[in-house]
Design a binder for these strands. Structure first.
Lengths: 224, 224
DNA sequence: TTTCACATTTTTTTCGATATTTTACTGTTT
DNA sequence: AAACAGTAAAATATCGAAAAAAATGTGAAA
């Protein structure tokens, strides 16, 4: 298989594999086996698994190795709720702080995404196309919060998004695409470009709520 | 020095050291040197530093090792802002979801904290006493969000709190104690027990704002 | 048949040595 | 003196093997 990968690439590859459902939930990940895929030693592989574990993308238990996280509806709910918090907060701040440049980038990200999503309607979904969609979806949501001015928030969101995606894929290999998605993304874009913070938040919340087990209790005002 | 530490203890010890200002900001952390302190090999030490780096408590750069994060007023600002978001959100949810048991625990945590803080007035601060205060302060703030129902939020808060504390200590060895602290903690407790979500948020925000460079732009409603 | 003790196999963790890369130093040329 | 190349020193990353621990299997006793 692929060889001569730099450390960074190796991490990236493994990240993609554990997120994109190449392993079954709960499956053991043995460094001894995986090392063959990358032509590195078990120690290096172990270190890589360790790094993934600190992002919550693989579980680690002392003296009994690594395994893929179990799928859990509760966890997906929790991650969704947290995504709502981070994306609402981040987007509001971006609306406030972002300049014309940000609006342009957001518009561009949405353009790409909507183009892909419209084709997703008709074609059936190959893994490559799915990866394309995933990438575009991520970029749109990341751009939303990109000008919030808080690296901490953005980094945290990145981690949570990966774990969210991992759980989504574990739930069901099919993409969570529904025709509503197109409308919802459009709605978020419009509200954001209109600089209507409340409306944007509502639409983000609405958009993500699909993955909640139980509806949110009620609105709460949270401050920053 | 200490020997025969389990892996977990070793991590905990190193965490305490890098947080509590035993090393200067920017200082290199060489596994080869540190291994002597715990009687383990450089590899094991390296792994430990790696784990700390994924929490943001030490910086890691490929091919040039580990070092303590630089102190940065901007970073402290950012971490504070994020703490405000997480603690407001978590506390509001706890108020809503927490039962009598939670109120009791919160009350207990505050009792301990306020007792320590009142003594902090008169005595001068030995490192041991400071550690006592830090522990109590952490427990109070953790208890606030403890019944929010989101493990993700609580874990994230734990990580952010550690980094925040690290930056605080790097700023100035003295505790950030001011007489206002006692009043502020009391105010937060009262509002929370009164189940007044808005007031509680305001007081948490007020309490933490001390560490912001610039004041918050304005209130924003963020939803969950 | 069940339970427990013991031995075997597998898996995980730790280690010291080696290879690679970076950093520091030295002397040469412009 | 400044810039550069080349060499030596130090630090980091990688590896395979040894040690430790857990899981598995076997068989005897209840």
């Amino acid at each position: 298989m692929g060889k001569l990968l730099s450390d960074q690439n190796l991490f990236e590859q493994m990240r993609a594999r554990v997120v994109n459902g190449e392993f079954a939930p709960g499956q053991r990940l043995k460094a001894e086996q995986l090392k063959a895929d990358y032509g590195v030693s078990a120690s290096t592989m172990r270190e890589m698994l360790f790094r993934l574990s600190t992002f919550g993308l693989v579980d680690f238990q002392e003296q009994r190795g690594f395994r893929l996280p179990e799928h859990s509806a509760d966890l997906l709910h929790d991650l969704t709720q947290f995504r709502i918090l981070l994306e609402c907060q981040g987007t509001c701040l971006s609306i406030r702080l972002g300049d014309l440049e940000w609006e342009a980038r957001l518009s561009a990200a949405h353009h790409k995404l909507s183009h892909i999503e419209s084709r997703l309607c008709v074609e059936d979904l190959s893994p490559e196309f799915l990866a394309l969609w995933t990438g575009a979806e991520l970029e749109f949501h990341q751009t939303l919060i990109d000008d919030c001015g808080s690296d901490t928030l953005k980094q945290t969101h990145g981690v949570i998004y990966q774990r969210f995606r991992q759980q989504m894929i574990a739930t069901d290999k099919r993409v969570d695409y529904v025709p509503e998605n197109i409308k919802e993304h459009q709605g978020i874009l419009d509200a954001a470009l209109n600089k209507d913070e409340d409306l944007t938040c509502n639409r983000i919340r609405e958009h993500l709520s699909r993955n909640l087990i139980r509806p949110l209790t009620k609105k709460a005002q949270v401050i920053v």
